[in-house]
């Protein structure tokens, strides 16, 4: 998928400890996170991270706790200084910015949503949403107007004068989202934004985010440890482990072709039928069953359609052209949990 690159992370290293800079060479020479810790008492935060984040899409960065994902996202707006490497936003080097430039950059270019909401407890919902605009120095009337728009947009009308402590977790995070959107920044950083919410509320928030994205087309960088969430909302996914990128690709690519056992472990429990689409289990040829399925239809919906039409094969369509065919057996094979890497290759070829 070629689209213009919004944020480009190049050879990024973060090593926590007094002599981080000297340790980069050791990591480049192959020192592992464990050996760095045991031998030199330095903690490897990020190791040679290279990611090109496309504009106007949702980029998910996922990994378990300790994988460095929260560290990585904090490098993008330089809440954490890297040990070495480069971060380019619209071609501009974030690391070269002066304090003043950095503040302007944070005020206008990037905004952030936090795991534990990080709202100001002594301010009302309205004042919290105004926060970013106030820092930017927007005058009062316009500030209120813009904030009201976002409060309405995230469904919090009527709660403007409540304090955060009076709201549920889901509502608090809507305030966090509205606050981040109100600054009109092109890039939205979301640090485990929905992880602290109940599963149902989390689903809700995911839908709100996807709805918003449909009209706003922001560049969203979303951190999560939840693969279901990653697959659901991500256009692209990067998987981190011990501070290093082990795989990046579309949700389909991750599920169909996990890079190693770590990723395979991750995808073991997910609902494959919800992620994989018809094109991923398609083979060349055509059939005369009479059923036509869109190539991006997920298997979860395609299979019942086949059963309903009482056929075992269907043509795969893209732009009203037949680009291949699928059989029910291929689909079932596709959603079966692969035993091993090779085994999986066999199941869908």
């Amino acid at each position: 998928m070629v689209s213009d690159v919004k944020v480009s992370i190049k050879n990024l290293y973060k090593i926590f400890g007094p002599n981080g800079k000297d340790m980069v060479q050791k990591v480049e020479d192959g020192a592992s996170k464990a050996s760095l810790q045991a031998k030199y008492q330095h903690v490897l935060g990020l190791s040679n991270v290279n990611i090109d984040i496309p504009a106007r899409r949702i980029q998910v960065i996922m990994g378990l706790s300790g994988s460095g994902k929260s560290t990585l996202i904090r490098h993008l707006n330089r809440l954490i200084e890297p040990t070495s490497g480069q971060i380019l936003v619209d071609g501009e080097d974030v690391l070269a910015m002066s304090d003043k430039e950095l503040r302007e950059f944070r005020r206008n270019k990037m905004s952030m949503v936090f795991q534990k909401f990080a709202l100001l407890p002594h301010r009302t919902v309205m004042d919290n949403v105004c926060y970013g605009l106030k820092i930017k120095g927007i005058e009062k009337v316009e500030m209120k107007e813009r904030s009201q728009k976002w409060i309405d947009r995230v469904g919090l009308s009527g709660f403007e004068h409540n304090y955060p402590a009076q709201l549920s977790g889901g509502m608090q995070q809507r305030v966090g989202l509205a606050r981040a959107l109100a600054t009109d920044a092109e890039i939205l950083l979301m640090d485990e934004a929905f992880s602290a919410l109940d599963p149902l509320i989390r689903k809700d928030m995911q839908e709100i985010l996807l709805d918003l994205q449909e009209e706003l087309h922001k560049t969203i960088i979303f951190i999560t440890h939840d693969l279901d969430e990653a697959l659901h909302i991500g256009d692209n996914i990067v998987i981190l482990r011990d501070g290093a990128v082990i795989q990046q690709g579309s949700p389909q690519e991750i599920v169909l072709d996990p890079a190693d056992d770590y990723v395979r472990d991750f995808i073991k429990d997910i609902n494959r039928a919800r992620v994989l689409d018809v094109s991923s289990v398609m083979k060349p040829g055509s059939t005369d069953s009479g059923l036509e399925l869109a190539s991006n239809l997920v298997l979860e919906l395609a299979m019942p359609a086949m059963v309903k039409a009482d056929v075992t094969s269907a043509n795969v369509m893209r732009d009203s052209e037949v680009i291949g065919m699928v059989t029910l057996a291929d689909m079932i094979g596709g959603i079966a949990i692969p035993e091993s890497h090779e085994g999986e290759q066999v199941t869908y070829r």
Partner: peptide
């Protein structure tokens, strides 16, 4: 985290 938010908004 609140302090970080203040920081992140510039």
């Amino acid at each position: 985290e609140v302090l970080e938010a203040a920081e992140a908004f510039g």
